[in-house]
Amino acid sequence: MSSSSWLLLSLVAVTAAQSTIEEQAKTFLDKFNHEAEDLFYQSSLASWNYNTNITEENVQNMNNAGDKWSAFLKEQSTLAQMYPLQEIQNLTVKLQLQALQQNGSSVLSEDKSKRLNTILNTMSTIYSTGKVCNPDNPQECLLLEPGLNEIMANSLDYNERLWAWESWRSEVGKQLRPLYEEYVVLKNEMARANHYEDYGDYWRGDYEVNGVDGYDYSRGQLIEDVEHTFEEIKPLYEHLHAYVRAKLMNAYPSYISPIGCLPAHLLGDMWGRFWTNLYSLTVPFGQKPNIDVTDAMVDQAWDAQRIFKEAEKFFVSVGLPNMTQGFWENSMLTDPGNVQKAVCHPTAWDLGKGDFRILMCTKVTMDDFLTAHHEMGHIQYDMAYAAQPFLLRNGANEGFHEAVGEIMSLSAATPKHLKSIGLLSPDFQEDNETEINFLLKQALTIVGTLPFTYMLEKWRWMVFKGEIPKDQWMKKWWEMKREIVGVVEPVPHDETYCDPASLFHVSNDYSF
């Protein structure tokens, strides 16, 4: 037999072997998808029940369902290793196997995995149920939502704001400190077992692309791009910072340095994350009609249902689908009040099986009107990829998912749209002054938050990498806050605090 014939037969044999492996992989994935749908849905439903009704029974049910899901994933991840990716030609099959071969938290021992889940659930519970009591009246206690958040959004009393700011960190942050220390250790162990340098590197892996249509993007490039983007917006932020400082000097004349940092408790919310609520103090042309339409919403008797129905109309107007019937029947759109304790931070849920929901303790404000559009943007994205195989139902990356939500809320905030839905009067006219007011309001929300987020994530990356010793977490946190964000702590904090974890995203294990 000629050498060319042998070569042809060899190629046929290799192709047949690849085809056999690929067919086996497809069969394996079909079985996995069928089983995963049910187990993931049960786990998601148990998590939803806990988040909307925080009880010991629900946390136990959530843990049990989560353990079943984790055990299943660990088993299936091991089985998926049997299919070598280099022998799979079908890109859809390869991407699913690649996702499943990534072990995630299931790489930890059973004891450590359970401990990590306990830590995460405990931190979430402390954050959502933590109360601050009035020292003069111990029976008068406030949760973060709505009590403390209400103070931080609306109060102009310097000392009341300081009390709310400090009490939240003292009551909740200190409880979270030992848990967060354990969390860092276990998450790093999980990341390294998955061949990442640390948990920050694991997060950045979400943005990594290897040879898809000839395109590559590394975790290191992400760090470079983040640094570059921050340097680009820094001059604009510094101008905004100086303008806000001048306006705060008028409101709090004896508390603000004309050349120094801004006190952290005066920036519009509990964390200084969004400066939106400073608009009334900083509006350049106050004689113009108010483009913050909160009062109009209240006057027109809007409620949470109306807010979300208007958001749905907005999405339908640009060619996107209505929310499902189940969305309206199962979402929690208002604070249950004293009936039950719930996690009030707005979140969009894709539970699986076409079950999409939003959890939000909606208030009738323009801020929540825009947040509703943001969260519904997440749901629209979830619905758009719902037909994909189970392992591919995700956003391109976390940042893109947020961008989908944010672009919709930005569009909904324009005076033209607000006028079209009757929240600005029919005779409202846009001119240079109203446009400047609008742009300032947008800058308070968007530009003001960028250094906050950059600095927070930089601190977390450094902590996970071990570049900040545990006994210097708070020292470095406030050094970076002053240097990068231009914000100063109103009272000193020692290493018993854990100020970063006083933010939902940190205590609940979300990256930005």
Rank of each mutant, 00 (worst) to 15 (best):
K31D: 00
M82K: 07
E56I: 07
F28R: 01
V93D: 03
K26M: 11
E22F: 06
Y50P: 01
M82P: 03
E57H: 03
N49V: 03
V93R: 04
E57M: 04
M62Q: 06
L91R: 14
N64V: 11
N64Q: 12
T92I: 15
A46M: 05
E37D: 02
W48Q: 00
N63V: 12
Q60H: 10
Q60E: 12
M62P: 02
I21F: 03
F40A: 14
Q76E: 11
L95C: 08
E57T: 05
N61E: 13
K31H: 05
L79V: 15
L73G: 06
Q89V: 12
L39S: 11
Q76W: 08
Q102M: 06
M62S: 07
S19A: 10
L45I: 12
E57A: 06
P84I: 01
T92R: 15
E37F: 00
K74R: 11
F28Q: 00
W48D: 00
E75D: 14
N64H: 12
E22R: 02
D67I: 13
L95W: 12
N49I: 05
K31A: 01
L73R: 13
N49G: 06
L39Y: 12
T20S: 11
K26G: 07
V93I: 10
S19T: 14
K68S: 05
M82T: 02
Y50W: 11
T20P: 06
Y83S: 03
K31P: 00
K68H: 09
N33I: 02
L91P: 15
V93C: 03
K74A: 10
N33P: 00
K74D: 06
A65M: 11
H34S: 15
E37I: 00
Q76N: 02
K74M: 08
Q89P: 15
A65C: 08
E37G: 02
Q98T: 14
Q24E: 05
L73E: 08
D30C: 01
V59Q: 10
W48H: 00
D67L: 13
T20V: 05
L95D: 14
T27H: 15
E56G: 05
W48C: 01
Y50H: 05
P84K: 05
E35Q: 12
K31Q: 02
E35C: 15
A71N: 08
Q96W: 03
K31I: 02
K26S: 14
F40S: 12
Q98W: 12
L73T: 07
S19K: 06
F28M: 03
E37T: 04
E22I: 04
W48Y: 00
H34C: 03
Q98A: 10
N33L: 04
E75F: 13
W69L: 14
L91E: 12
M82G: 14
M62C: 07
S19L: 06
L79H: 08
Q96V: 04
Q60P: 03
F28E: 00
Y50F: 06
N64I: 13
Q102A: 11
L39T: 12
E75Y: 14
Q102K: 09
K26I: 15
N63L: 13
N64L: 08
Y50R: 03
Y83C: 13
L79A: 08
Q89H: 13
S19M: 06
Q89C: 14
N63E: 12
N90I: 15
Q96T: 03
E23G: 14
F40T: 05
Q24G: 01
Y41A: 01
F40P: 02
V93T: 13
E23W: 12
T20Q: 04
E57D: 07
L95S: 07
H34R: 04
V93M: 04
L73K: 11
N61M: 13
V93Q: 02
N49D: 15
L79S: 10
D67S: 11
V93P: 15
A65W: 15
I54L: 08
W48P: 00
N49A: 14
M82I: 06
L91V: 14
K31G: 01
W69V: 15
Q42P: 01
N51R: 08
H34E: 03
E23V: 10
D38Y: 00
V93N: 02
L45G: 00
T20L: 04
N61A: 14
N51W: 07
E37Q: 04
Q89A: 14
E35H: 04
H34D: 01
L39C: 14
V59R: 13
A46R: 03
T27Q: 05
L73I: 09
T20I: 04
A65K: 10
K68Y: 04
L91K: 12
Q42K: 15
E75A: 15
F28V: 01
L39N: 13
K74C: 07
L29H: 01
W69Q: 13
Q76K: 14
E75C: 14
T27F: 15
Q89S: 11
N49T: 12
E37A: 03
L79F: 15
Q96N: 01
Q76I: 15
Y41T: 01
L45M: 09
W48K: 00
N90C: 15
A65N: 05
N51M: 06
A46L: 04
N64G: 10
E57K: 06
N61K: 07
T20M: 04
P84R: 05
S19Y: 14
Y50V: 03
V93L: 06
E23T: 14
N63T: 09
E75P: 12
N49Q: 06
Y83K: 01
V59Y: 13
E37N: 01
L73H: 07
K68W: 04
L39A: 14
L29P: 00
F28D: 01
Q60F: 11
E35A: 14
N49Y: 06
E22V: 04
D38R: 00
N61D: 12
N33M: 04
Q96M: 05
L39D: 03
D67C: 11
Q89I: 15
E37K: 03
L73N: 10
Y41I: 00
L29I: 02
L79Y: 15
F40W: 09
F72V: 05
D67W: 13
V59C: 13
M62D: 02
A65E: 03
L45V: 03
K31L: 06
F40H: 08
N63P: 00
N49K: 05
I54R: 05
S19Q: 03
Q96K: 04
L95H: 08
N90S: 15
T27Y: 15
T20D: 05
L91D: 13
A65G: 03
M82L: 12
A25V: 15
F28G: 00
A25F: 14
Q96L: 04
I21W: 01
E22W: 02
Y50G: 03
A71S: 11
E22D: 13
Q24M: 03
N49W: 01
E37M: 03
